[in-house]
Each structure stands twice: as C-alpha cells, then as structure tokens.
Amino acid sequence: MLETLISIKNLSKTYNNSFEALKSVNLEINKGEIFALLGPNGAGKTTMISIICGLVRPTSGEVKVNGSDIVSEYKITRSQIGYVPQELTLEQFETVFQNVSYTRGLYGKSSNPKHIEKILKDLSLWDKKSMRLGQLSGGMKRRVLIAKALSHEPSVLFLDEPTAGVDVELRQDMWRIVEKLRQSGVTIILTTHYIEEAEAIADRVGVIDNGEMIVVDETSKLISRMGQKKLTIQLQEKVMQLPESLAKYNLELASDGFSLAYSYDKESKQTGITNLLQQVKDSGMKLSDLKTEQGTLEDIFVSLVHKEKK
C-alpha cells in the first residue's frame, strides 16, 4: 500500500488584497512518487507549494509532512523539504560551492564537502564550483538552485516551474535529473504549465484552477481523458450543409464552409479517420489539405471544469 508523505486538508489562502488563491484544497502525495501540479497562471500552484515550504502562511486548513504539522512542527517538516523556486533568485558574488554549502548550513546540517561535491558532479556543475553565481548562464543557475535544494539531503523536493523558459535540451536534462532523484528515493512535486512535461515524468497529476483542485489522477489515466485531437479537413469547394452520411462523426463545419473539424481520441485503436475520409470522398467533396492538432492545456481545463460542473 502506498504511504502518504504529504497530507493537505481543507487548505485555504486569502491574501491581504482579498484574492482567494486556494479554496479548501485537499490532496495527498505518496512517498517516492513524482507528482505534477498543473494549472494556468494564477491558479494557485505556487501558493500551495509556498505554504508547504513555509514561505506563505495558510489562512486555514492543515498540512502535514511525514505526520508533522507545517506550522507547529515547522523545524521538523522544513528540514525534510527542498525547494527550487521559479525565479532565478541567487546572490551574484558568491561562488557555486560556497552558496550550496551555505544552504546546507541553513538547514541545520554540518559542513560536508564530499556531499556537496557529489551533488555538483551529478548536476554537471563541478567544473563551475569556483565561479561566481553572477557569471553563470540561466540554465546553470537553475541547476545551482536544484543543488541548493538537495544540499541538505531532503526526502521531498518541490520544483516550481523548473523548465519555464528553458530550451528543449535543458528541459530534457531536467527530466533526467528528476527521474534520477526519484530513483534515489526522493519524492518530487513539481508545478508546470506543460502537459507534455507531466506526461513525460509524473506518476500522478493534479489539475488546479482558480484555487480549486479540479482533478487528481494517475498521469496515464488523465492523458487518456485529455487525449482528444482535432483533424481539420480543408475543402476545395464551399459546403453549405453536411450530408446525412457524415452525421455520425459529429463534424464541425466552419462558418466559411471551407473546412470540417473532427475530434478523436488519439489513444483509441480505431480513431475513425480512415472511414471518415472515405465517407467525405464518397459524398463528393474534394480535399485541399489535412491538419491535426493536439488539444491545448486551455482546452483541457475548459473540458475538466465543464465536467466538474456537470
């Protein structure tokens, strides 16, 4: 049976300007898993992890890490947590090695140059150890932030938008790092805008919007629910009305009459595309082009919110 590491009950947060960032959120995160928190800007992702890490005070509710309360037993909970912020917030003039060692000290651990060396080597930072932080590239700074978060050997790591604004190569590098950490037994919670990211690395996904947890599910299940794709068929001649034979495909006819849109489940073995195209041909329509597109995150949110309301 899976063991719960973080338990969130009825967590709410209202800021001084009356903005309700979290509305009675409930969530459980299991030991050893990679959990991705998805949501658009301002959904409440950063607020939630900031509360767990001690950066923001909850308005109400309860959060426990490994059975300890984050408010009354904050020293116990925080010593188990590593946090990588979204922004590249580093001092400019310290060296990489000094700065990572400093963070280890803050978390109440005695100096351990061997451990810091291991982390820096794992993150390909060892050759930069004597460089000042201000001299590093954005990607390297992000690695330093991860090194700092791991300096005190945490059992749970929070990554707030770890791949926001980074190039594809670094993003895939980050995914490899995250997977390696999970293999070493670290529980990982990350926030992201990118559904591909959640698909690539997360065991479970939570979707948060407008301060409410809309859905929490295993990634594979969520992906199959979200896996709608759209096929757009461009026509050579304008169509005023769809023939009866195409009714079963629930096609959307564009207002200009020059294109048809067909939604299908990409995970399904039988998408119906072959039959559809045959029917289109049989009905005398001539094609000029075909285009497929993945549903956007926005489409997915709309769909999920709609389902919740139902």
Partner: peptide, 18 residues
C-alpha cells in the same frame, strides 16, 4: 535587505530556522 531585494531570502524563510 539584499536577500529581500534579490529574492534569495526565500531560502532563509524556507529553512528550519526560528
């Protein structure tokens, strides 16, 4: 003030320090 300005104060606030 400097950690507040640079944003690096987060690590002091997130650490197990009173």
């Amino acid at each position: 003030y400097m950690p507040k300005f640079s944003g690096s104060i987060y690590e002091i606030l997130a650490a197990p320090i009173s």
